[in-house]
Computed example of a mutant assay.
Amino acid sequence: MLEREDFHCPYCGERISALLDLSAGDQQYIEDCSVCCRPMVFQLHTDGDSWDLQVQREDD
């Protein structure tokens, strides 16, 4: 089950889109911003139906 979510990079503020895999349960992972290349920490909490995504700077 995939969902697309738009968010703003916590470093440069650019709007970015992420594809989230809700079938894998709660996740935490790091991806580089496609604009400024800085590392963003993604925290995805899901029960398979509803979900919450938080994106923050790696140094927070």
Rank of each mutant, 00 (worst) to 15 (best):
D49P: 00
H8K: 14
V35R: 09
V41C: 11
S50D: 15
Q43Y: 02
E31A: 09
M40N: 11
F42L: 11
R4T: 15
R57W: 05
Q54D: 09
F42V: 07
S50E: 08
A18Q: 09
F42T: 09
Q28T: 13
A24M: 07
D32W: 01
E31S: 08
D21Y: 02
S17P: 02
V55H: 04
M40D: 03
Y11C: 04
E5A: 14
E5M: 12
C9P: 05
D60R: 12
Q27Y: 00
L19W: 08
D6Q: 15
C12I: 06
D26K: 08
C33T: 12
Q43S: 14
R57E: 08
P10I: 10
M40P: 01
Q28V: 05
D59C: 10
R15C: 03
Y29G: 02
Y11G: 03
F42E: 07
D32P: 02
C12V: 04
L22Q: 05
D52R: 15
E3D: 05
T46A: 11
E3V: 15
G48H: 10
L53K: 12
D52L: 13
Q54T: 14
R38P: 01
G25H: 05
D59F: 04
L44E: 01
M1Y: 11
Q54L: 11
C12T: 08
Q56T: 13
W51A: 10
Q27T: 00
T46K: 11
H45F: 03
Y11I: 03
L22H: 02
R38L: 10
H45Y: 08
M1P: 08
C37H: 10
D21S: 02
V41I: 15
G13D: 04
L22P: 01
A24G: 06
G25E: 06
D49I: 11
R15K: 14
D47M: 03
R38Y: 07
H45C: 06
A18T: 08
T46L: 08
E58Q: 15
Q56R: 15
S23T: 11
C33Q: 12
S34Q: 13
A18E: 12
E31C: 04
Q56P: 01
D21W: 01
H8L: 10
